[in-house]
């Protein structure tokens, strides 16, 4: 290790560091313009090849169709787990008469 304390040059090095040149806004803009050009020339990053999900999505009509399908599925599951009151009322009160008027035939008369 060198001992650099009290080195008369230190005051000069300190002064130089204090006056360190800073890139102007114009220089930074030039640098970033170059970066943009490199990005543009490289094109968009390579995309992953289409897999089974992409094939399925293409078959059902893309993400919008998938959203509708998901909504319908969730609604069905929810009604199954927690049926709304109206649905329960319908289930409880509904009576089906398969042969209306059959009772009348059985009546004596």
């Amino acid at each position: 290790m060198t001992t650099e304390q009290n080195d008369p040059l230190d005051a000069y090095f300190d002064a130089a560091r204090a006056k360190a040149p800073q890139p102007s806004g114009a220089l930074q803009a030039r640098i970033l313009t170059d970066a943009d050009a490199v990005l543009a020339s490289a094109g968009a990053p390579a995309k992953a090849p289409p897999g089974r999900l992409h094939a399925f999505l293409a078959a059902v009509g893309g993400w919008p169709a998938m959203a509708g399908l998901a909504t319908a599925t969730l609604a069905g599951v929810w009604i199954g787990i927690s049926p709304p009151a109206m649905v329960e009322t319908l289930i409880e009160t509904q009576t089906v008469e398969y042969l209306p008027g059959f009772d009348a035939l059985l009546e004596e008369g």
């Binding site: 005051a11 000069y12 002064a15 204090a18």
Partner: peptide, 8 residues
């Protein structure tokens, strides 16, 4: 008294 300039 410009140390930075003198150093440069």
């Amino acid at each position: 008294q410009d140390r930075a300039a003198a150093l440069q």
